[in-house]
């Protein structure tokens, strides 16, 4: 495996627990300890109630595609072999949305509303990225 050339999260003080949880293949999201609202990306203040106390809750890993795009233009050498690739906004069961990729199927086949499940891609020793694959026909 060659050197990983794509951009990586920089892991700052606010979001380190997120990336560490992904590294452990058990993604946890920040939840306000006062009003209970999940938020993403991680931040030090609850945008709903302005409380600063937070807890980190493991997610169910279930979500749905809110937007699906197919990136056809390569923005640099690191992406040349990937185009066309999928970029999606995933709405998690916990109510937050995140940018990710739906993998394991042709990018054109990912549609808004599709059920997806969380998987991890171990891209470096330090970083595992949360990605999604189609949930198939197992949705309730």
């Amino acid at each position: 495996m060659g050197e990983y050339l794509k951009p990586l999260p920089s892991k700052n003080l606010d979001d380190k627990p997120l990336w560490d949880s992904c590294k452990n293949h058990s993604m946890a999201l920040q939840r306000c300890a006062s009003c209970g609202q999940f938020r993403y990306p991680p931040r030090s203040l609850c945008p709903n109630c302005h409380a600063t106390e937070t807890e980190w809750r493991p997610v169910s890993g279930r979500g749905r595609v809110y937007v699906s795009l197919v990136m056809c233009h390569s923005y640099g050498p690191a992406w040349e072999k990937d185009v066309p690739y999928n970029v999606s906004i995933i709405e998690l069961e916990e109510g937050v949305k995140m940018w990710s990729n739906v993998i394991g199927c042709p990018p054109d086949e990912v549609k808004i509303g599709d059920a997806v499940v969380l998987v991890y891609e171990d891209v470096t020793e330090e970083i595992s990225l949360p990605k999604f694959r189609p949930a198939g026909h197992q949705t309730p």
Partner: peptide, 26 residues
Amino acid sequence: NEDFEEPFGLLGAPAVHACVAARHMH
């Protein structure tokens, strides 16, 4: 917001705006 976008290949202004088009179509 690079840390939550670029690792997934969300790059360039067209992609974010394409979300508006995709939702409008849907």
